[in-house]
Write a protein that binds this DNA or RNA. Structure first.
Lengths: 223, 223
DNA sequence: TCTATAACTAGATCATCGATCCAGTACTCG
DNA sequence: CGAGTACTGGATCGATGATCTAGTTATAGA
């Protein structure tokens, strides 16, 4: 032919590249803007091609979410179960907050290899610590972390900033909310992020204190 | 005209009816099946009509979610802050679990009047109990409840039951998970719902224990 | 080297969605 | 009675997830 099409065959689209690009797209534009067409466009291919590597869009989200868990480092266990649990949960939280879209798609089983590996670590740590039902302790911790991340991501992403004024206008209806505030935008400290961090750490401390206390009385009670 | 259309003018579509029907639709078919068209059809009207009462679909979800909070009864405060907090959080959890779709749309500010009223109650209760920062204590409790609900709703709605077998096949990779299990489907007790309840109560107990302990040392330390 | 099969790509298309345009219809107030 | 407002709905727009069909390239076996 006279005009050979200059387009070279793509030939090298892998699942890893799709997931990495999906994470990048989600980071830049959020979960509402992730479409198969846009993702394909960024990968310089057609949307149909993606469906060769993936059977549904939900697969992309599952893979992207598990990729986030890959960022969570497994702590050492030398410092005891409490330090290990605290460090794992903080890392867990940090990874999810670095990708705020992940907080909005936590309503699915965390069955990816990276999530399972970290859950397994948590189970092992708690079982070694002597908890008779590590599942219960692990649930308490995981629930707290998930709730915290969703709460923070929600406020940081979706609050337009009018909440403080909104509540103060209704101080007659909600006096305590108006006094103490609901978000961390207009607090006395000027760094909302630091306030979120300390709030998370304090609540996690409550939880760990209660767990430790139960573990001690159990150990003392049964010998 | 010979055939007068028998359709009488609707004339009486109110926001309350829309919200009630939206909740019913969500209860029956889940959040994925809620569309403005289907909702309008159930109300025997056109989708356009809904947009007169509501500016966007998100409004419907916001209103439906706040309607769920209306089911949460405010406990009395005679039995002390701990009992009140426990009862409010349990009621909070119960209402959300009765409408499992609500757990998947918690990634939005809870700014409806019903949610605010209950948050205000929680703030007041904790402030009266002497917590110097009721916001932090309230966050810990709310985060735990939200995480718990999302976790349970996720497993109950989306797990197809193959998780137990899936994990046991990979017992070499995840020994602790295979031993203790990740869900509450195949446990020794035959009632998964009861196991969820006791797990939630136990974790909430950890949290309240830690909070109480901190409150006591604070009271003792500063006089 | 030839060929058959699998791996991979893409345009066109389908049903459906949220939202809007436009053309009305009933009710209320003067 | 007449005008303005509250309200309704069919048709439509652009976009989406997914599929159908039709290809094109790479690799393995004869």
């Amino acid at each position: 032919m006279w005009s050979r099409p200059p387009k070279a065959p793509r030939q090298s689209l892998t699942l890893d590249k799709i997931v990495a690009e999906a994470v990048a797209l989600l980071d830049e534009e959020g979960v509402g803007r992730l479409t198969m067409r846009r993702l394909a466009e960024r990968l310089d291919t057609g949307s149909t091609t993606l469906y060769w590597h993936v059977t549904t869009k939900d697969d992309v989200l599952d893979l992207a979410l598990d990729a986030v868990f890959h960022e969570v480092r497994l702590p050492g266990r030398e410092a005891g179960w409490r330090a290990a649990a605290r460090e794992l949960m903080s890392g867990w939280r940090g990874a999810l907050l670095r990708h705020p879209w992940s907080a909005t798609i936590l309503d699915r089983p965390l069955m990816g290899p990276n999530a399972l590996e970290r859950t397994e670590f948590l189970y092992e740590t708690l079982a070694e610590a002597g908890f008779p039902a590590p599942k219960i302790a692990a649930y308490s911790l995981a629930n707290y972390v998930m709730g915290s991340v969703i709460m923070q991501a929600t406020w940081q992403e979706r609050d337009e900033g009018g909440t403080g004024a909104f509540l103060k206008e209704r101080a007659d209806l909600y006096p305590s909310l108006a006094e103490h505030g609901l978000d961390f935008a207009g607090g006395p400290a000027s760094d909302p992020s630091a306030e979120w961090d300390t709030t998370f750490a304090e609540g996690l401390g409550y939880l760990l204190d209660g767990m430790e206390q139960a573990e001690e009385t159990r150990r003392g009670g049964t010998g």
